[in-house]
Every structure is written in structure tokens, then in C-alpha cells.
Amino acid sequence: MADATALWISGHLAEKIRAHGAETYPHECCGALLGRDLSSVAGSDRGSGAEAPAREILQLFPLVNRRDDSPRNRFSVTPEDVLAAEKAAREQGLEVVGWYHSHPDHPARPSLYDRDHAWPWYSYIIVSIQNGAPQDMTSWRLNDDRAEFSPEEIEIRHRAAV
């Protein structure tokens, strides 16, 4: 992915992701990011051509970590969960544009395991939870060649609800 990308999210939703990570600590939390990819929305407020391609997160769809064998260092979302998230998004005229999860007592950087279970296009938000307290939150997109992730700027924006 050559272009830098940006992820717009409200302070309220960003705080909800942090709180979800703290709530499930020391286990990993996970959920879907519902919103709009502005690069594919005609007439969007994407702004001037100089602005990075952006997408906005308008709702969260918290999910249950299905990995009961190693929930401290792994999370898993079943295809049924994915379909439920997609249905919830469709019902509100949105789409699933990414996923979030926590890294308990580890940095908010993607792992090799994250890479091997990712697709490009999706935004992957990671929040680091240290000793139960939320710390850094980052977002990533997998490159086209699957070799590594590129960081995506998280921009806190206020916006009216859908």
C-alpha cells in the first residue's frame, strides 16, 4: 500500500475500545469497526486531494473472544461473528471496515500471528493494556504483498451520529 491512510474516530468510541481492553484484561478483547471507507464514497467529505485517503469509524460491534484455550495472548472471531457484524453494519448503512483487539501487557504493534490472519484493506486497531490500564492505541493496514503492516494515523474527530 503506497498511500498513507488515516482513520477517523470520535473520542467517545476510542475510549470505548480502551475500556473494552481494560474490562477483559488480562484476556484479549476484540470487536468490529463499523463505518465508511471515504475513498469509495462519492461526494464524501474526504476533503482536498492533498488529504490522505481516510475512513471513518461510526460504531463499534464488540465481540466475544472465542479463544478459551489461550485468551491472554490470542483472540479469535468466528465466521458467524463476522457475518453478524456485517449484518449489523448493513442495517445501518455502514460496512465493517476493520477490527480491534487488545495486546495485554504487550506493545500496540502487530505480531507475526496478526499478519498471518489478516487481509489488506481492513483497519486493525490494537490497544496496549499494561497492568490493566489502557496505554497506546494504534491502527494498521496489511500491505498488498502480505509482508508487513503499515501504520495508519488515528485522528480523533467529532462528528454527528449517523
Binding site: 472471531v77 465466521p79 477490527w99 504487550h106 506493545p107 504493534r109 507475526l112
Partner: peptide, 16 residues
């Protein structure tokens, strides 16, 4: 074609 979403803490960091 439906993905299962999965991930976990780093055993190796992987970012540009």
C-alpha cells in the same frame, strides 16, 4: 468467502 478474524500479542514485531 468469509474470514475468521484472529490475532494476538507479538512474539515477533512486524511493522514497517
Amino acid at each position: 468467502i468469509i474470514p475468521s478474524i484472529a490475532g494476538g500479542v507479538p512474539t515477533m514485531e512486524l511493522a514497517s
